[in-house]
């Protein structure tokens, strides 16, 4: 005959409790189910977003845009003039790229992107932002001591190169166009795009490596 004493009950309670999701997971589930129920979001839209940003949308998109700007002067002109319209040519417009500005590095100028307020970032062009971009340390220090921050990323800028820091907002976000590496004459867009890293398009990397291509 089965017995069910107090110790068993306590063990069972512990076992069941251990299967409860974490506090933030429960809060998220709570909010999502209420927002769905009240018609603010559709569950299939949420699922599609999660799949796209977990699996498909990433910095390779931005890399394609940068590579085309290197090989196609007319596209480069359009990108610098109106980056939002230019990336729409690839179908990369979408989340958080309604107002996008491209800034080009040169021999004497380096650009660095931050969002000091929160974490504004051109998601549909670069995917989810890296953890460091969202950190309080980066958000505070990128403006205050950009050269030091760059140095910690392995970018040691000579004094002859100026640094301009762009503070992203909900209304305007940025894409850094890094310089095309030397010795890549005749390379096609796909090969060039493979050189362009996420950090280079945020400005925390400067010189692109050609060995890996």
């Amino acid at each position: 005959m089965a017995t069910f004493d107090r110790e068993d009950a306590a063990k069972l309670a512990r076992h069941l409790h251990s299967h409860l999701p974490s506090d933030p997971a429960l809060r998220t589930k709570t909010l999502e189910s209420l927002l769905v129920e009240r018609g603010f979001v559709a569950p299939e839209t949420i699922d599609a977003w999660v799949e796209a940003y977990s699996e498909h949308i990433g910095p390779k998109r931005g890399a394609q845009v940068v590579a085309r700007s290197w090989v196609d002067p007319a596209f480069r002109a359009r990108l610098m003039d109106d980056a939002t319209a230019a990336i729409a040519e690839f179908g990369f417009d979408g989340d958080a790229t309604g107002h996008l500005k491209a800034v080009e590095n040169t021999d004497t100028q380096h650009h660095l992107i931050v969002c000091t307020l929160c974490s504004c970032y051109p998601f549909s062009l670069l995917g989810m932002s890296p953890a460091w971009y969202k950190s309080a340390a980066y958000r505070a220090r990128a403006v205050r001591e950009p050269r030091q921050v760059l140095s910690e990323f392995g970018v040691d800028l000579p004094e002859t190169v100026g640094v301009r820091v762009w503070d992203s907002t909900a209304e305007l976000r940025y894409l850094v166009v890094p310089q095309r590496p030397a010795n890549t004459d005749g390379w096609d867009e796909a090969r060039l795009a493979a050189l362009v890293t996420r950090n280079a398009m945020i400005g925390t990397a400067r010189h692109l490596k050609t060995e890996a291509a």
């Binding site: 999701p21 974490s22 933030p24 997971a25 998220t28 589930k29 909010l31 999502e32 927002l35 603010f40 979001v41 839209t45 949420i46 977003w49 999660v50 940003y53 977990s54 990433g58 989340d95 958080a96 998601f123 995917g127 989810m128 890296p130 953890a131 460091w132 980066y138 921050v149 910690e152 990323f153 392995g154 970018v155 890293t197 996420r198 950090n199 925390t204 990397a205």
Partner: peptide, 26 residues
């Protein structure tokens, strides 16, 4: 900060993706 391009997963936990999805979708 890490100098290298680290390929990290976009999210550490599913709820992080879901909450971002909710905000961006709204």
């Amino acid at each position: 900060f890490q100098p290298d391009e680290v390929t990290e997963p976009a999210f550490d936990h599913p709820w992080q993706a879901q909450i971002m999805a909710l905000a961006q979708t709204m």
